[in-house]
Design a protein around this nucleic acid. Structure first.
Lengths: 205, 205, 205, 205
DNA sequence: AATGAATGAGCCTTCATTCAT
DNA sequence: CATGAATGAAGGCTCATTCAT
């Protein structure tokens, strides 16, 4: 029906994928628009047809990045069942996620660097972490209500501890993927933290 | 001993201090050699007299950075006494350290980004974290031997958990210093992790 | 007569009007084909359907511009009556013209710049001024023949003086419309010049 | 005495001369920094060593341009003697000036174009013409006081007429240098205007 | 006839590095 | 030792023009 195939969405994806690859390889600041264009197989001008500027590309990249990450946690928090199990599931999901990202690690690392200078991106990160913590807190509160977690636990505090633990392990992993068996290590660390939290240690699988 | 040497050493310091200040303000990529020269009060040419390149300056900066960080942990691990107390002391030291660094956060964050691209710097970071973990592991092993920690604890695993927790909380702090009372939060998180580890929870102060 | 022709002619006009508006606003070099297309309400491709290039649009614009300007002088020179009165009428017409153009001054000013670089346009201007001077000369000659002007006047020289005076005052006006009451000033200047030319100063109204 | 020859002033001149030549050839907007650098025989980077931007180069060029033009008129207005003679001298100076500038005409023409869009440059031109008119007015006033000019002359009005005449003739000359013998024409036009102004026509040489 | 996606040369500016003094 | 003028390779972005549909 359309007089011409609408390729704009496809182009946008094409560019986004190329940008991700190039940023991973070179970093946000070193990657040039030329690099991205070449990687995407389009002309430099075409980049500006779909994105207003280099910053706009970075901005969109981050948005996609965070949205995907949050989707997982949200869906988990919404489902019924044992919170302890949920947290272990979340941990395993994170492991899979990280595993998938090992080849693209640089982007994640650079995110922190860019955050240091761009208020916009720092705000992105803040919002992301705030939401992540909020969901975790809610989950943990349910763990207390359901009688899985010790009642003297402060949900907000534990949520931060978990978030920090995950983020830190991810960081160490990205910096040195060979250092240890991170896949197991993340689970192990989660169990160590859970052990001081749950009422019945046997529930930690 | 030679007076020449002293001047040379002083110049090197002068440049290093300026570089740190400028990098904190602008980031590694945005800071120009001109900026550093101006901040150091020397000519641009002088920079190249003492350092081979901009990368060399960054490299040296990181080296100093890591060396100082490790010095603390090492001295603590070397001292006798309760390991639980040592770990809490380490936590508090880290808090002080972070507190001091909030104003310089950019450099810390950018470190990760630079690490993503420069094999040399990534290696620096790896060595740093490896050593950090090793010291922690040794400390924890002593905790088990001294009967403070549960004997079924794997020292290596717990060392990684602590390192990850610290690093992750530091990251969250740097990204959003206002989000919570991080000073207390770091201690609280450490206690939460220790609770599943120590034999007698009352020893956690 | 053919309906196709009409559409084509209409499009050409549409584009010309848009071009004039955009050039006035942004200047010849800053105005982009995109700007013109948007202003005309047609696609960028359509522009090239009716004009070979951006330069072709500018060229046509100038041609129309000059043709209109000359039409006025010609019709005046063709009509009988007192030459002195004719010249004053011409002056007043010029004032009206300038008045109308103050809002469009940029195009007029830029004309000179474009003329400096494009041989074609410079030629346009030359032809225009040559014709303008020729008509003026003819008019002045009639003034001498009719006994209004002093017989020792060189018609060609006076024609140039008038042309220069008009052009110069127009220029000053465009550069600084608020500087003085230009409407009166142009007439006053014409009278000053005429005073040394006419036999009976009382004929200058 | 100087540890190194100070070449900065020389470089600035070198660049200014090159800029003048290139702008004359290509216009302010078409001329690229590359063109200027090549013409000046320095690297593109060197341009930015001496001028903050392309606009800064243009700005400086205009300043020099106007300052030189005004210097002549001022010195003439300051000297005693017959005003009629002074005006004829000024005319001849202008002729010499124009003659010198025929090869560089484009810059003058483009000035008007740039003026149309850059408030800064338009202001330059306004100030210049305002001052020019003021000096002329003062000179003419003296002509009346000294009994050379008719007392019913309005100095301000005549000043504008002269300025417009000069500017317009210059314009015509630049557009079509071959059209007539401009050197004589400018003098002739001035005499025509003076004839209606002076009390004794015999004083006009 | 008309569209507008795509191209790619070109522009202004920055900056790590070199080198004559 | 020290200087800072000079270089030239990028970098982000714009825009006249083309062409498949």
């Amino acid at each position: 029906m359309a007089p011409r195939q609408d390729v704009s969405e496809q182009r946008r994806h094409q560019i986004m994928d190329a940008a991700f690859a190039v940023f991973s390889r070179l970093g946000f600041e070193r990657a040039s628009m030329d690099d991205i264009a070449k990687e995407a197989g389009v002309s430099k001008g075409a980049l500006y047809l779909y994105y207003k500027s280099k910053d706009a590309i970075i901005g969109r990249l981050l948005q996609v990045f965070f949205d995907q990450a949050l989707k997982q946690v949200r869906s988990l928090a919404a489902s019924e069942g044992s919170v302890t199990t949920h947290l272990m599931t979340l941990t395993r999901q994170m492991v899979r996620e990280m595993d998938r990202m090992v080849s693209l690690q640089p982007v994640s690392l650079q995110l922190y660097a860019v955050a240091a200078r761009h208020a916009m991106i720092r705000q992105h990160l803040r919002t992301y972490f705030a939401e992540y913590r909020a969901i975790m807190e809610e989950l943990i509160q349910r763990g207390i209500t359901q009688g899985e977690f010790r009642p003297d636990i402060n949900p907000a505090e534990l949520a931060i501890a978990f978030t920090g633990l995950y983020e830190g392990l991810g960081l160490l992993w990205m910096i040195d993927p060979q250092a240890t068996n991170w896949r197991e290590q993340v689970e192990t660390s989660t169990r160590l933290l859970l052990r001081g939290v749950v009422i019945d240690p046997a529930t930690i699988l």
